[in-house]
């Protein structure tokens, strides 16, 4: 049981334990400290877990930034709208657009919603990771392998990006079985231009 009664001024709400691992690694790479990352579950749990997070933090007392990271899944716009609805029922400020924070005039905490992978209408964390790895020679082999399997198999993988990400991790020196753990091992290129959008969003998370 967490016993952290001192609430961080910066809170990131992510979809799962693996996302938590990923963002811990990315924020460390960016030199952003003092951020509390909370797993608020996938789309089925989010509507209960975000309010529960609000309760845990005494209604976000003293919190300056709340960043919410969600997978676009089928539609980035629909995911964004559904998060906005939940924020409105909790009486939070709501950003006008995705991937940016509310302005200070709207009150604290400043709220931002980032829809992964960031520059696509659909997808998830694994899509972003594959974009970061696209220049790696191994990644190209993995893409050909999985695409070939998908064509050849009667029952191809349901989630091709996930299969590709797992296959990429499988050929790394120390195998880990999730993209977040891969991030902690430095397997994804955090210097890539593909991260500009997310880096720009997270760059707001600096305590004033």
């Amino acid at each position: 049981m967490e016993s952290d009664k001192i609430v961080s001024k910066i809170i990131l709400a992510v979809e799962g334990k693996d996302e938590k691992n990923f963002f811990e690694a990315l924020l460390k790479h960016m030199g952003i400290e003092g951020c509390e990352i909370n797993d608020v579950g996938g789309k089925d749990q989010f509507s209960n877990k975000l309010p529960a997070l609000k309760k845990k933090t005494t209604n976000f007392k003293g919190v300056q930034f709340l960043g919410i990271i969600r997978d676009a899944e089928e539609s980035a716009e629909n995911t964004f709208r559904s998060v906005i609805n939940i924020l409105q029922t909790l009486k939070f400020p709501t950003p006008d657009k995705m991937n940016q924070f509310t302005s200070p005039e709207k009150g604290t905490p400043a709220v931002g919603i980032y829809i992964m992978p960031g520059n696509a209408d659909s997808g998830m964390l694994e899509d972003l990771c594959l974009m970061l790895a696209k220049d790696h020679h191994a990644c190209q082999c993995v893409e050909r392998f999985i695409d070939g399997c998908a064509e050849a198999l009667q029952q191809p993988p349901k989630n091709i990006p996930k299969a590709k990400a797992q296959a990429y991790l499988a050929i790394m020196p120390d195998i880990v079985n999730s993209v977040g753990l891969g991030a902690q091992r430095g397997y994804w290129n955090f210097g890539s231009d593909e991260l500009d959008g997310l880096r720009g969003f997270l760059g707001n998370l600096k305590k004033t």
Binding site: E2, K5, N38, K49, A52, K56
Partner: peptide, 16 residues
């Protein structure tokens, strides 16, 4: 907290 929020917090191992 209502019951749903208690269950959500328990699931996330959050102190209540």
């Amino acid at each position: 907290y209502n019951n749903n929020l208690i269950m959500a917090s328990l699931d996330s191992n959050w102190e209540m």
